[in-house]
Nucleic acid binder design. Structure first.
Lengths: 198, 198
DNA sequence: CGGCGAGGTTACCGAAGGGTAACTTCGCCG
DNA sequence: CGGCGAAGTTACCCTTCGGTAACCTCGCCG
């Protein structure tokens, strides 16, 4: 009727709309009809931009992963010490998730892990994160495998902490992303033994 | 034909079969027909034991959560110091997941998080775990909220570490559950700063 | 040995979903 | 203004799926 868009803009809009829909009901629970309707168009339009439902989901996944990774890299680049980089990375991670919760749900909760093709995309993202963190662990004599294991633990802290955080704090962002990141970075850096009362 | 079972045994078998199927393709990706076929019966048999697909999935979730929680509680009860309890809990967790990978996939990857009813079951499990761990953190003067945040971080380490572990080590269980637990417990307890080369 | 009830099956319904073919409408460019 | 290509729609096909009604069959108990 009224809302015709050039291909590039429509492509971008479809990615954004699909992200929201996939985040709400997962890959299998979201129909192409729903996404089309939410975008204000009809189904064949979707198929002009994406070859299949799987292709659309993959594109959404890659898009959101790239955006998140870029922000984390940017944040860690600003810090000088390894410790500050860990804290900055966490802060960027939590801030991104707070701003864009759908990204979190699509990356870590939309049924991604069960599908080899989709899991590979998320795995690559997590793997890049873990590699970056592993480089920050400057302990002499530690084997690469051990360093990587520790780095994955850090990634896990970020992921599950943000999950619990997004779950409880619906509108009231009780701790700010920065405060949360500071606490979590302390846990990561000093461990339970190193935690002290304020 | 040949394989008639008493109701109680069939019920148990259906739970086990459904766990495997749901683990492979998630809640929405698994059909009742598939589960029935995998169990060697037909669909109406499923509906004699479980009112609906949702009810079946919920029963599987609760069953597997209870079994895992019981093993962790048992393991931590054997240890005397908090530090040993953390290590023992991790070991029990990893051992359970190694023995029963489907449990992990159903609890953390089957599209559970997107559904309020199912998420509540998993959340209760994680919440119980976090509460137990929070009690082990014996730092004076730490606020309950802060303790709980740290405990959730620990749960996150366990979850994501086991995910990466199950992913890479398909048949070759590179590190044993106990060795893995020891490394991870050290990370949790001493933090990156406390890690030393062997 | 006969019947009765638990355990199980066949066959079906209606809805929803992925994907496609054929047709229409807008707007820009010569 | 006229037509051509990009943007979008209607209407449909075929499959799968959750769920159910009606029927069958085995084995145990009197």
């Amino acid at each position: 009727m009224s809302n015709r868009l050039p291909a590039a803009e429509r492509h971008r809009q479809l990615l954004d709309v699909a992200l929201v829909e996939f985040a709400r009901d997962g890959f299998r629970g979201t129909s192409m009809n729903r996404i089309a309707e939410a975008a204000g168009v009809t189904k064949p339009v979707l198929y002009q931009h994406f070859a299949s439902k799987r292709a659309l989901f993959g594109a959404v996944l890659a898009d959101v992963g790239e955006r998140l990774a870029a922000e984390i890299v940017e944040a860690t680049a600003l810090a000088t010490t390894p410790r500050a980089q860990v804290a900055g990375g966490f802060a960027a991670y939590f801030a991104f998730m707070a701003r864009n919760r759908d990204a979190f749900f699509v990356l870590f909760g939309a049924g991604t892990s069960r599908d080899d093709e989709f899991a590979a995309i998320v795995r690559r993202f997590e793997s890049d994160m873990a590699d970056t963190i592993a480089d920050l662990i400057v302990i002499e004599g530690l084997s690469p495998g051990h360093r990587r294991l520790l780095a994955q633990g850090i990634v896990g802290i970020a992921e599950v902490t943000s999950r619990n955080w997004l779950r409880s704090a619906d509108a009231a962002l009780d701790p700010s992303p920065d405060a949360l990141a500071a606490q979590v970075a302390t846990l990561a850096w000093s461990g339970l033994r190193g935690i002290e009362a304020p």
